[in-house]
């Protein structure tokens, strides 16, 4: 957050309250500009332009609703608009507007076409849907019904559980740390060579939202095992089933949750019919 911009915007809005005889158009324009400035320059790192555009569109819609929800305001603006477009005294400003608008559009087009080449925007999907089951080293893993086979040890045999977590730690620091980083924030040594960068497991919106079977599937099958829907997935993750044992992959899953302090998403009871 850019505090200076935030303070300037707030000061501008406070000042707006003290502008004598400000009409509804001035008030709306003031708010629109203030929010636009904040969204454009007040947030660090900057918001993507797609999000800025969406927020500004919502804001514009809301301000137009506010204007037209009051007939007195609406009539005032309509009267001003009619006066501006029909009265002789406004001929020069009107001509100026008529001349400036296409120039602005032309300017926008100019900037668009003179920008350097860039890959097209893509609406990346963050969680690929997993299959119902996968084959790993000849074993079928049921991703719908099976849990991490060592998770139960957490309560049944804590010492054995700790051994699995320690094995997971070894696996992680031998294989995963280079991309996912020392503290699993997706900022390993190699991370910035990738686009997109590796997942940040510290983020409460990644592994904390998923069941362990999902994590196991991602580790085992990696980028090559991503589904054919919603491509391109753009993942450089290797299929670790070619390098690690099934136990190692379950263990590193335990370690990811243990290290970050997140809990895997638990299975839920449902209110519907019987078992599938």
């Amino acid at each position: 957050m850019n505090i200076i911009i935030l303070l300037v915007v707030c000061a501008g809005l406070v000042a707006l309250r003290f502008v004598p005889k400000i009409n509804i158009l001035g008030w709306l324009a003031g708010w629109w500009i203030a929010v636009f400035v904040f969204l454009r320059w007040g947030i660090d790192p900057p918001l993507p332009t797609s999000i800025q555009g969406m927020f500004v569109a919502i804001l514009t819609l809301a301000l137009l609703a506010y204007l037209s929800a009051n007939s007195a305001h609406f009539r005032f603006v309509l009267d001003r608009f009619v006066a501006f477009t029909t009265q002789k005294k406004y001929t020069i400003p009107l001509l100026a507007v008529i001349a400036v608008l296409p120039c602005l559009v032309a300017l926008r087009v100019y900037f668009d076409v003179t920008e350097g080449p860039a890959p097209p925007l893509s609406s990346r999907t963050i969680h690929p849907p997993p299959p119902t089951s996968i084959e790993v080293a000849g074993n079928t893993i049921d991703l719908v019904n099976d849990d991490n086979p060592y998770r139960a040890l957490e309560t049944e045999d804590p010492a054995a559980f700790e051994e699995h977590v320690e094995n997971g730690r070894r696996v992680y620091y031998e294989n995963c740390v280079y991309c996912h980083g020392d503290d699993m924030a997706g900022d390993g040594l190699f991370a910035h060579g990738f686009d997109p960068i590796p997942a940040n497991f510290q983020d409460a919106t990644t592994i904390a939202m998923l069941q362990e079977g999902y994590i196991f599937w991602r580790i085992a099958k990696g980028g090559p095992g991503l589904p054919s829907e919603s491509t391109p997935w753009l993942s450089a993750m290797p299929a670790w089933e070619d390098f690690l044992s099934e136990e190692d992959m379950w263990d590193v899953t335990l370690f990811l949750y243990d290290f970050t302090g997140h809990r895997p998403r638990a299975r839920e009871d449902h209110g519907g019919g019987g078992d599938h």
Binding site: P45, P46, P48, I51, L121, G186, T205
Partner: peptide, 29 residues
């Protein structure tokens, strides 16, 4: 209406450190 993973150019994504914005990220769930 805020999405979890944002539509961003490569430069924007690099500035954010990924497809999640550090501030907006929390609004996406």
């Amino acid at each position: 209406a805020t999405p979890h993973s944002l539509v961003a150019t490569v430069e924007e994504a690099r500035a954010m450190g990924g497809s999640h914005h550090p501030i907006l990220n929390v609004l996406g769930v």
